[in-house]
């Protein structure tokens, strides 16, 4: 304890602000949620502070495990798609001239000056059954009935990828920017083909950026509920939606809290394991050739 106090004192003021921010807006709310997850929903829709594990028992019911599995499946798929689309973009930006780079980054982020909900409805007006795309191809006589893109699983994918792509491009971009291109030339000179250069030289050096970027998009995707609602027609269950429903329509805060705690703790454990794994691997070879 004494040690902790001393260490806090050593922190610069800027860190203090961050620390206060973290405690009041992250740690404290999480602890409240955690406490509520062990409470009982009283008949009247309030919380009664009696200790119970029943909420967790419910949360681990097969149905909710399936919900979790489906959410992971969809989010993981969208994250991988983001990677496949985002990596070349990041690569191009990292190699481009400063002017082009600035232009590219700006183009990537301009849509984010618009409100999130508006952007989602923008997608509806383009890809909807009466949207721009379907009207165009129907006018051209390519098809009689509109192609169903929205209100399907694909609609959710599209929305997730569109909305989260920039958050994945930026960390990869900054990793690629630091990458020394002469290493690539050296590998080629030493007889590696393009594929080998890519997998053995380039990828290991930007692994950290890829990992951080993937987490940046995967974690919020798991809690997403607006995109599945509007673009998926609310036909596919998402864990985020189930949680929100517990709070705002079912009046079951303790159960909602239990679901939220399971998700947060699961993600924390996953991140922690990864960090341990990275630490063990980190060594003198981490920045060289493998």
């Amino acid at each position: 304890m004494k040690k902790l106090v001393l260490r806090l004192r050593d922190l610069p003021p800027s860190a203090w602000i961050f620390f206060a921010w973290l405690v009041t807006l992250s740690v404290l709310p999480f602890l409240i949620i955690l406490a509520m997850s062990f409470a009982v929903r009283s008949e009247s829709g309030l919380i009664s502070w009696t200790f119970t594990l029943a909420n967790y028992e419910r949360a681990f019911h097969l149905v909710y495990l399936k919900v979790l599995a489906k959410t992971i499946f969809l989010s993981l798929g969208a994250t991988i798609t983001c990677l496949l689309v985002g990596f070349p973009v990041a690569y191009y930006l990292a190699r481009a001239t400063p002017e082009k780079r600035q232009m590219g980054l700006m183009l990537l982020f301009i849509p984010f000056w618009t409100n999130f909900i508006l952007r989602i409805y923008g997608i509806v007006s383009i890809f909807g059954n009466h949207g721009l795309l379907n009207q165009t191809i129907m006018r051209l006589g390519l098809t009689d009935s509109p192609i169903e893109i929205l209100y399907t699983r694909f609609g959710i994918y599209l929305g997730l990828v569109y909305n989260y792509l920039p958050f994945l491009v930026v960390p990869i971009f900054s990793a690629l920017e630091k990458f020394d291109l002469s290493l690539r030339e050296a590998a080629m000179d030493l007889g590696a083909n393009r594929w080998q250069t890519f997998t053995r030289v380039l990828l290991p050096n930007v692994r950290e950026g890829i990992a951080i970027g993937s987490l940046f998009v995967f974690i919020p995707m798991m809690g997403e509920y607006v995109i599945p609602d509007i673009l998926g027609g609310a036909k596919e269950v998402f864990l985020g939606r189930v949680m929100v429903e517990q709070f705002f329509t079912m009046q079951d805060w303790p159960f909602g809290s239990a679901l939220a705690s399971v998700l947060s703790m699961g993600l924390m454990i996953a991140v922690w394991v990864r960090m341990r794994f990275e630490q063990r691997k980190a060594g003198p070879t981490s920045h060289g050739l493998r």
Partner: peptide
Amino acid sequence: VLMNRMWAELKI
């Protein structure tokens, strides 16, 4: 509680 679970199951 049961109905809530069914509502989730409906959309799996």
